[in-house]
Design a protein around this nucleic acid. Structure first.
Lengths: 104, 104
DNA sequence: TTGTTGCGTAACGAATTCGTTACGCGTACG
DNA sequence: CGTACGCGTAACGAATTCGTTACGCAACAA
């Protein structure tokens, strides 16, 4: 299974909707997820689920012929506290510089 | 100018590197940015800068024939405090559920 | 004015993405 | 056993992405 970047997983609006759904409704099987999407067919959702698996954002727990998908938010948290966090202080520094310039 | 999603802007590693560079080194002109990338030519960087502009992650301040690019971290902060923030508590809830299950 | 420099973009190719329909495999159920 | 169901995936098309090289325009320099 290919290993994908978290940000790639988040770049598609349908995938973000899937993550939102799993967060709000808890674990669901593939068909249950697909039935909530009018604009995308079930195989399309299945492909999105595969990408999400490759990003580690979702974990498939197959039991019998059904396949329960569970959200794993840890990659999101790692991104937030890792790469994204650097830009919080960057923005603060930028504001401070602007304020300093305004005072002159 | 097309309007693009922040997550699309962040999905490419070269673009993240550009943002990192602007954050660390302050505003730079296009050539100055491109000269730090061995693997991508200047027109390639120019296209990435366009995408970043379309995401609002970068602002071009043209003066004379040079073009200064400045980081704008606000879309990143909006993403962090908006869509991404929902998954912080999602993870906490998930942990709580796991702990509750472990107690039984 | 003439040359040079910095930058954007058109044009093109290869690869990837996102959606579809068609199919097959394994599980549950009558 | 035979049938129906749930799911993944192959195969394909259209659109997009990411990189290149070639070119052109405006600004500065000589």
């Amino acid at each position: 299974m290919r290993n994908r970047d978290v940000f790639v997983g988040l770049a598609d609006p349908t995938r973000r909707e899937i993550l939102d759904l799993l967060r709000a409704a808890g674990p669901l099987n593939a068909g249950g997820i697909a039935s909530r999407f009018g604009a995308v067919t079930r195989p399309g959702i299945s492909r999105h689920l595969r990408v999400l698996r490759e990003c580690g954002l979702v974990e498939a727990e197959g039991q019998g012929r059904e396949n329960l998908y569970r959200l794993d938010a840890r990659p999101i948290l790692r991104a937030r506290d890792g790469w994204l966090a650097r830009f919080g202080s960057a923005h603060a520094a930028q504001l401070k510089a602007l304020r300093r310039r305004a005072e002159r």
